[in-house]
Write a protein that binds this DNA or RNA. Structure first.
Lengths: 112, 112
DNA sequence: ATGATATTTGGCTAAAATGACAAATGTTCT
DNA sequence: AGAACATTTGTCATTTTAGCCAAATATCAT
């Protein structure tokens, strides 16, 4: 998945860019990672060590690493290396608004 | 792409279900369709004939039809046949909130 | 420097998504 | 009934994604 950018390397708001963003969220594992990063935003912006994320799933750590790379390329998360560990956090806390929206939509559908 | 459902066939709010929803939005063509359906919501709920959607793209009509099926299976749109034509509309007008959210997020990123 | 720990990357296979063409279906009109 | 139109579905080729294992890289402790 390639992030669409302008000539200056600065991303812009094309349909492709939006689609890339949704695509990054279009996987249960990545979604779970994002929701985890959305918890406790008041503590270091909700950042989590990769090692913590690894414990959440029973899949190979290389696979998690790849999922994290997808999220990062799409601009959903950022990462920072400190010592032996790498910490990921949401690129924008307001990202959680999308989930509130979605929950509302899906709940509304389920009522029918 | 299969929509996750309960035994009663009623969808529930699993990570997979959310991921399916995002996956349906994770394509520029489908995104453009959804945004088109979000216009003029006050007129027949924003519904559009497939024939109108066909004119928006230079791809085969069978491909558009498949994209519409993906959106429908994910619960993003509903359809209704009237005469020779089929009309699609957003399953929930509030879906547009997601786009407002996303625009906000991406705009915010672009400022940096 | 060596070894232990944490994470990413290369290489591969299997599965899923995309898109085109042709054929099928359903509807209206004559 | 038959033709014309609108949309969907069958089938297939191509591309993309997901996941695993092994190897590479980076950092810390001894």
């Amino acid at each position: 998945m390639t992030l669409s950018t302008t000539k200056q390397g600065k991303p812009h708001l094309t349909p492709q860019r939006k689609a890339d963003f949704f695509k990054a969220l279009a996987h249960p594992t990545r979604l779970a990672i994002v929701e985890k990063l959305g918890e406790n935003l008041e503590i270091h912006g909700g950042e989590q060590c990769v090692c913590v994320l690894l414990e959440m799933f029973e899949i190979d750590f290389s696979t998690i690493s790849r999922h994290l790379a997808v999220l990062k390329n799409a601009g959903v998360v950022t990462s920072e290396k400190r010592g032996k560990n790498v910490y990921y956090r949401l690129a924008c806390p307001c990202l959680m608004d999308i989930f509130y929206c979605l929950d509302g939509i899906l709940d509304h559908q389920d009522e029918t």
